[in-house]
Amino acid sequence: MRLLYFASIREKIGISEEEHDLPSGVSNVSGLIDWLKSQGEEYAEALADQMVVKVAVNQEYVSVEHPISSNDEIAFFPPVTGG
């Protein structure tokens, strides 16, 4: 799976994207967030507040219950502020 990070979340994690195999036991967005939080202090901090972390799977907004698979593009970002 391809993981993308934007804006303040990208800055906190320190990278804009990375490739990972789907971790065993992880089947949805919520599980992936929990797994990422265990990957380091910077991930734990960037994804700490689930209210301000928005997620898109294959470029569509999804809820944390959304299922994920190994070929997905999964993006994490704060609430949008364009316009």
Binding site: F6, A7, S8, A56, F77, P78, V80, T81, G82, G83
Partner: peptide
């Protein structure tokens, strides 16, 4: 656009 388009 202000609340749905991914811009930061």
């Amino acid at each position: 656009l202000k609340t749905k388009a991914p811009f930061w």
